[in-house]
Design a protein around this nucleic acid. Structure first.
Lengths: 204, 204
DNA sequence: CAACATATTTAACTAAATGTATGATAAACA
DNA sequence: TGTTTATCATACATTTAGTTAAATATGTTG
């Protein structure tokens, strides 16, 4: 119970530090985000101008500059939003005991998150920024994995844990990108089955 | 024999179409390439201006525009150069019979290539463009793998070949990036041993 | 080596996009 | 309701991109 309150207070503190008090700020920020997503469907991020983003969002350009110094800051902010979102999606995974099950369930949650925000992730790929997608998945997944301290002690082989983790996360991410890019070629279930087959029990 | 001549003539035709006859062109192009590499060590690619590249190369800006329409074209040209380079490095791999040996040797050649051009690849990572590195490795490796047609028929499981290939190439690329980013933490031999352990015989 | 072809330089210029500043207006907050 | 502050409208300085044309320098070819 105390832990819960502690958690809550931290969240409130973070929100407070972010200074997102004023509704107007939240409103414009969301408008800028959705504008960015929409534009990234048709253009690469480099081609998108600050003026484009503002026009699409019906927001004055000087307002944009009162929030961000340039479009790259907007992108970083947007990506962090996605990361936090994904991280909390993965939290449902906390009380799975078996390690292999944990990994498969994590990938399951990952795919569900991405499918629920397919527009956004597809826009990221379209805008020629696949490295963003890779960054998001790997960073968030590593954070989640690091919560399960035991893992680092379990693996019996000669391969260091960080290498092991990067190996399989790179593999999974690569498949996810293939899944997104090939649109309707594979279902979410297909991908999950393939990964279940490809990730060995040895990991446990 | 005829096929050989046909191949040769195509190569000659390509070289002719590239119009790289004049030494001056080769010279400036190389200057632009090395200038780009040098700048990417300190700045992200977005931050680098056409004028910066020209100053560093002691080349007039209008000369730049007689070669490329923008800096992105220069980057593409540079990347293609790297791809061709890597592809011919991998050719030593042609007459290996055993499939697992082929993969390990391919990774070996890959690591040797990257180590011999460590400056360049490290610059690419520094300039916040890891997706370039991923593109290069995956595209070239897939080309090389596709030469060995048999592979597509060999795998016994339910996982489609393209998924299988993307899975392990994603994994290997992820490790290579980790290897480069962690500078001196692992030797080339370490990485090769780890990957040898992680890539299953099942593939064969 | 001389004649020719063409790549590079120099310099000026247009257009577009960035980033800043200020006072007026509108909306949120307490 | 009064105060605070985010947004708007506008104007302006600066940077970068990309084009053009004539003079110069450097490779190519017979």
């Amino acid at each position: 119970m105390f832990t819960f309150l502690k958690k809550l207070s931290i969240i409130i503190l973070v929100k407070f530090m972010e200074k997102k008090k004023d509704l107007r700020i939240i409103k414009t920020q969301n408008l800028l985000f959705t504008s960015l997503i929409k534009l990234m469907k048709d253009k690469s991020f480099e081609e998108i101008k600050v003026a484009d983003i503002c026009n699409e969002a019906y927001i004055n350009r000087s307002t944009f500059y009162s929030h961000y110094n340039d479009k790259y800051e907007l992108l970083v902010d947007f990506i962090n939003e996605l990361k936090n979102n994904l991280l909390s999606s993965l939290e449902k995974n906390e009380n799975i005991v078996n390690t292999k099950d944990y990994y498969i369930e994590m990938i399951h949650l990952l795919l569900e998150h991405i499918e629920s925000k397919k527009d956004i992730y597809f826009s990221i790929l379209k805008s020629n920024r696949s490295s963003i997608l890779i960054d998001i998945i790997i960073e968030v997944a590593v954070k989640d994995i690091n919560k399960r301290i035991e893992i680092s002690n379990i693996h019996k082989g000669n391969v260091p844990t960080d290498i092991l983790v990067k190996f399989y996360l790179g593999a999974v991410t690569s498949i996810i990108i293939e899944w997104l890019e090939s649109k309707n070629k594979y279902t979410k279930k297909d991908i999950l089955n393939y990964l279940d087959e490809l990730i060995p029990e040895i990991l446990v």
